[in-house]
């Protein structure tokens, strides 16, 4: 997994609540047996249906931070959604809340999800939609996010932060607990 560094980027504002994983990566693109090749299909149905959808607008489409509203990533458990976002070139998603499964899937792939108050999200969405050149700065180590002259600190799970900063993976961590798992299994009947 790639280490996560502090970075500056333009923003892709997706002004919607409840962006579901069917929108992020429609089912017809889920047939691959590898983890590659999903980025080009990010939001493909919405891009086809709505010519003015944000990813169709060149002034926004190169952003590396996606900004959206509440319950982002709800619906289907497909990890392909996190893969598609990352493979498109997006490093962080900033919203007022996330779907649970998507939240876990993202963490496991080093996609940074940041939760901010709804009020801030709405203000930043409006600013970003009004000016595509504005850039956002994210510093994971200090847990700060800055945009349009404002800086906020954000909460981030210590374990996740540790993994992201070091590029570590959950599986290594789980396998280091093999003795505990065996001990647990010896107490079970089912």
């Amino acid at each position: 997994m790639e280490k996560f560094d502090t970075f500056n980027s333009k923003v892709i504002p997706v002004d919607l609540d409840n962006v579901d994983t069917d929108m992020i990566i429609p089912a017809q693109h889920l047939k691959s047996v590898s983890k590659e090749g999903f980025g080009e299909h990010l939001f493909s149905n919405l891009r086809q249906m709505y010519p003015d959808f944000i990813l169709n607008r060149p002034e926004y489409s190169t952003g590396q931070i996606l900004l959206s509203k509440s319950n982002f990533g709800c619906g289907s458990s497909r990890e392909h959604a996190a893969w598609a976002i990352q493979q498109y070139g997006i490093k962080a998603v900033v919203c007022s809340s996330f779907g649970d499964i998507f939240f876990n899937n993202s963490a496991k792939n080093g996609l940074l999800l940041i939760t901010l108050p709804e009020e801030t999200i709405n203000k930043w969405l409006a600013l970003s939609l009004a000016d595509s050149t504005l850039t956002m700065n994210i510093n994971l180590e200090h847990q700060t996010i800055s945009f349009a002259g404002e800086t906020f600190s954000f909460n981030y799970d210590e374990f996740r932060k540790h993994c992201l900063l070091k590029g570590l993976d959950d599986l290594d961590y789980l396998l280091s607990q093999t003795a505990d798992i065996s001990a647990y299994e010896s107490t079970r009947s089912i």
């Binding site: 458990s77 876990n104 799970d157 599986l171 789980l174 093999t178 798992i181």
Partner: peptide, 21 residues
């Protein structure tokens, strides 16, 4: 019973465990 992504399937296949809050 709950849905997970492919990473957590990998974890559970390997260790019979997953990490959850």
């Amino acid at each position: 019973a709950f849905g997970v992504g492919t990473s957590e399937i990998t974890h559970a296949m390997a260790s019979s465990c997953i990490l959850q809050s």
